[in-house]
Amino acid sequence: MRCAPQPSDRTETGPLPGEPFETGRVFERRVDRYGRIPVRAHRYSAPLTLAGSLATDRRRHSSANAVPAR
């Protein structure tokens, strides 16, 4: 069941900030020697050149996007 927005909801929210912000959770994971990154009960592949390094796992809406950590 979906509820329609109420007029009072609109007055309580403010404008979005001018700078970008993260909308999900960010984790740092170590890439194993096989080039895999463990995320929950799954393993995702990464370039073998990243083996042993940290990768950033950004989760948005139950998805995982692994990118090299800076």
Rank of each mutant, 00 (worst) to 15 (best):
Q6M: 10
Q6T: 13
P7L: 14
S8M: 10
S8V: 13
D9G: 11
D9Y: 06
R10Y: 05
R10C: 05
R10I: 13
R10K: 05
T11H: 08
P15N: 10
P15W: 03
L16H: 02
P17Q: 05
P17N: 07
P17V: 05
G18A: 07
G18D: 02
E19L: 11
E19A: 10
E22N: 10
G24N: 03
G24L: 03
R25K: 14
R25G: 05
V26P: 01
V26S: 14
F27D: 09
E28H: 07
R29L: 02
R30P: 04
R30G: 05
V31N: 03
R33Q: 12
Y34I: 01
Y34P: 00
G35Y: 00
G35D: 01
R36P: 00
R36W: 07
I37K: 01
P38Q: 11
P38K: 07
V39P: 00
V39H: 01
V39D: 00
A41Q: 14
H42L: 12
H42E: 15
R43H: 13
R43Y: 10
R43S: 06
R43C: 04
Y44T: 02
Y44N: 04
Y44K: 08
S45P: 01
A46N: 05
L48Y: 10
T49K: 13
L50M: 12
L50Y: 05
S53G: 08
S53Y: 04
S53P: 00
L54W: 02
T56V: 15
T56F: 05
T56K: 06
R58N: 04
R59L: 07
R60H: 15
R60Y: 15
H61K: 09
H61D: 12
H61V: 14
A64W: 03
A64E: 03
A64K: 01
N65M: 09
N65S: 10
A66G: 06
